[in-house]
Design a protein around this nucleic acid. Structure first.
Length: 241
DNA sequence: CCCTGATTCGC
DNA sequence: GCGAATCAGG
């Protein structure tokens, strides 16, 4: 399997969208997780929250036996490698909500989220967990060029909403409690803010959002090979394992 | 154990 | 350039 333009594009989008290397590898198919990581690095994609901390001074130690240690004569005490400044990660451009779940998530929040947003038994729930990227317009919405919208938008369903009691500010707006499988769940505003509410339009049948917001939610390119019936299963879909 | 990403290094 | 093997942290 080679890295075609399309596959690279998918890799980029998913990587930047916060998908794990495993998920990406699985979505692409024919490649291993390592291959994905390796390629991502070669592409210059910056590391996202990595579990491995950079060793500051301890540095050389790994299996760096590769370094034959230039023995000149009476080898002087090797200078300890100076700790290089940690590159400050660029803040993400923008996104309706925080996508990075793994980073700092709590269990209870997940539950809230599922209850709140994924409560649509009738709907094939295209992507309650990761409505991140994805494309294909079975609904008919036009797809944009990959370059036109760089930042991976993802109306990640808000977590921790449920303000115990309905606020007056959202009176007349579509609140969490108004959500059902027939109205658009696209969030407007930010959770916690007084006027936070949902779109509330009629959904594009089969999707959690209205047609307009589907256009925002589903954009990335997808391997348009085998036809995949209605519910376009996103990359981050159910992990088959 | 599982998972994650980072790195190395032979191809 | 590619990716398996390996490492290291959660």
């Amino acid at each position: 399997m080679s890295w075609t333009e399309e596959r690279i594009e998918t890799l980029k989008t998913m990587w930047e969208g916060g998908q794990t290397a495993s998920q990406i590898a699985e979505a692409l198919g024919g490649v291993s997780r390592n291959a994905v990581i390796g390629k991502a690095h070669r592409l210059g994609l910056q590391s996202r929250p990595s579990p491995v901390k950079p060793n500051e001074p301890a540095a050389a130690k790994v299996e760096a036996e590769a370094k034959p240690a230039p023995v000149v004569a009476a080898a002087p005490p090797p200078e300890p490698p100076a700790p290089k400044p940690v590159p400050t990660p660029e803040p993400e451009p923008e996104a309706p909500f925080d996508l990075s779940d793994e980073a700092e998530d709590d269990e209870d929040e997940d539950e809230d989220q599922d209850d709140a947003v994924a409560a649509s038994p009738a709907v094939p729930r295209p992507a309650a967990d990761a409505p991140v990227l994805r494309s294909v317009g079975p609904g008919g919405f036009v797809r944009q060029n990959p370059g036109e919208q760089a930042p991976p938008i993802a109306p990640a369903p808000p977590r921790r909403l449920v303000p115990a009691k309905p606020s007056e500010a959202i009176a007349g707006k579509t609140s969490l409690l108004d959500l059902n499988d027939r109205i658009c769940k696209w969030p407007l505003g930010h959770p916690g803010e007084p006027d936070f509410h949902f779109c509330g339009d009629k959904v594009n049948p089969g999707f959690p959002y209205c047609v307009a917001h589907c256009g925002h939610a589903y954009q990335a390119q997808m391997p348009r090979r085998d036809r995949r019936p209605p519910p376009p299963l996103p990359y981050g879909g159910p992990r088959v394992r």
